[in-house]
């Protein structure tokens, strides 16, 4: 069977649109609530990225840090993250789920044990922020053997030579970081410029799906809709923080936001 990630892109292409990828942090603000959010946004999101909270995140901006610290404070553990995925998959068997996090969490769990657990709970892909190529070669191969996509990150600082090598080794989906920034930064380059870089990458191997992330919000998503997929993370985390602050229900508010995001790329 095709990996649900590839199915999601296929479906989006049939509908002639970019795939919408959301990022939320597992356990934010509680285990139950983060599951409720996943269930609720899965109607409009094509692929769900679930962040594994870590307390020394070197690539995350303040919004995702806030979500991660909140989740850790509320007691999330690695096994709970898998439980959330498993519970979600019970009612959403074919919805694609990607875990995104930092390598130390995998390292401590044990690479093989981690991948087995990914398989048994229904994880379809992994993004490991601080395990770049070529350091990730061996781990990526292990993922492949388990039919889990290891998603390579590409950045504006990645040289052309390096881009080619990474893409040659990559699985069907890659993630292009729109600009020099941590997550959630203000978009400091024009969407046109981002798309130019995106096209350059896409040309290296047109069969590989390339999603764009970092700095994408309700305001900017529409201008980037010609990409294979678009990731919104910090804007969603911010919505959760805002809802909590105002005593509102994060589940409803995040669902509304995701619906709006979807409407902008149709």
């Amino acid at each position: 069977m095709l990996n649900p990630i590839s199915l999601a892109f296929k479906k989006a292409k049939q509908e002639n649109r970019a795939a919408l990828l959301t990022y939320t942090v597992a356990g934010d603000s509680s285990k139950k609530q983060s599951l409720d959010i996943l269930n609720s946004i899965s109607k409009n999101a094509d692929i769900l990225e679930l962040g594994v909270p870590h307390n020394t995140p070197v690539a995350d901006g303040s919004q995702i840090q806030t979500s991660a610290y909140r989740a850790i404070k509320n007691g999330i553990r690695m096994n709970d993250v898998f439980k959330i995925v498993k519970d979600f998959k019970k009612s959403n068997k074919n919805k694609a789920i990607i875990l995104m996090g930092y390598f130390n969490m995998i390292f401590q769990f044990g690479e093989n044990k981690f991948l087995n657990k990914c398989n048994s709970s229904g994880v379809n892909g992994l993004i490991v922020v601080d395990l770049p190529w070529p350091e990730n070669k061996e781990f990526a191969r292990k993922c492949k053997r388990k039919s889990i996509y290891f998603i390579q990150l590409l950045s504006p600082t990645t040289t052309t030579k390096r881009l080619k090598r990474i893409i040659r080794d990559s699985h069907p989906m890659n993630y292009f970081i729109s600009m020099l920034s941590t997550t959630g930064g203000k978009l400091k380059v024009s969407p046109k410029h981002i798309l130019k870089n995106y096209t350059k990458i896409k040309k290296i191997d047109p069969k590989k799906e390339i999603v764009i992330g970092f700095g994408i919000t309700e305001k900017t998503i529409g201008k980037l809709k010609s990409a294979d997929g678009l990731v919104v993370g910090s804007a969603i985390c911010k919505e959760i923080s805002k809802s909590l602050k105002h005593g509102q229900n994060p589940v409803t508010n995040v669902s509304k936001l995701v619906k709006k995001l979807k409407s902008k790329i149709l």
Partner: peptide
Amino acid sequence: YVPETLKK
């Protein structure tokens, strides 16, 4: 163990 952006 760094983000891709810092590789270069």
